[in-house]
């Protein structure tokens, strides 16, 4: 018989981390947007058929199934279409809760992307809020959306929901 079970401190748990190392290749269209971040500007693409502007650029229009070749530089100003208040702490969190993750519709763009909202209490953020991008200092710019530190309110009047309803 073994006395392995008679220890005061039997093993009950096992750490079994799983790990995946992989290389992500952005492709030509997305690389243009990434290069835009390194230059401190938003670069999208316009569909030649429906004229919608996609940012970040993906290289094609999912509605018309055609390549999007025309490049469009977009401004720093945007509208919050919808948002989420993050109250739940999680491993690796780098921002103090509560904070706001919002769908950001850049002026002139037809799709939104996720952005962090700062410079306003979490309970005052609203649909239609006008915001502008705050970029990291020039020497810290890189080919990553992390080049945008956050979006902050511009102080302009809110946009009516009816003016961006189709982008929700």
């Amino acid at each position: 018989m073994s006395d392995a079970l008679e220890t005061q401190d039997p093993v009950t748990m096992l750490s079994t981390p799983i790990r995946l190392d992989y290389d992500f290749t952005a492709g030509v269209a997305q690389s243009r947007s990434l290069r835009g971040y390194a230059e401190g500007r938003f670069v999208g693409q316009r569909c030649p058929v429906c004229k919608k502007v996609y940012v970040p650029s993906r290289g094609s229009c999912p509605v018309d199934a055609v390549p999007t070749k025309e490049e469009v530089v977009l401004p720093n100003t945007a509208t919050v279409t919808t948002f989420c208040v993050v109250n739940v702490p999680f491993a690796g969190q780098s921002i103090e809760i509560p904070y706001i993750t919002a769908s950001i519709l850049l002026d002139g763009a037809d799709i939104t992307f996720m952005g962090l909202i700062q410079g306003i209490p979490a309970d005052e953020v609203r649909m239609g809020l006008r915001v502008e991008a705050v970029w990291v200092p020039k020497e810290e710019l890189g080919p990553t959306l992390a080049s945008v530190k956050y979006f902050q309110p511009t102080g302009e009047p809110d946009r009516e929901i009816s003016t961006f309803r189709e982008h929700l």
């Binding site: 750490s15 079994t16 981390p17 799983i18 790990r19 995946l20 190392d21 992989y22 290389d23 992500f24 290749t25 952005a26 492709g27 030509v28 997305q30 690389s31 990434l34 290069r35 491993a91 080919p143």
Partner: peptide
Amino acid sequence: VYTSTHVLEYPY
């Protein structure tokens, strides 16, 4: 074209 190395890890 940009390429970057990613690590996905879960501490089960």
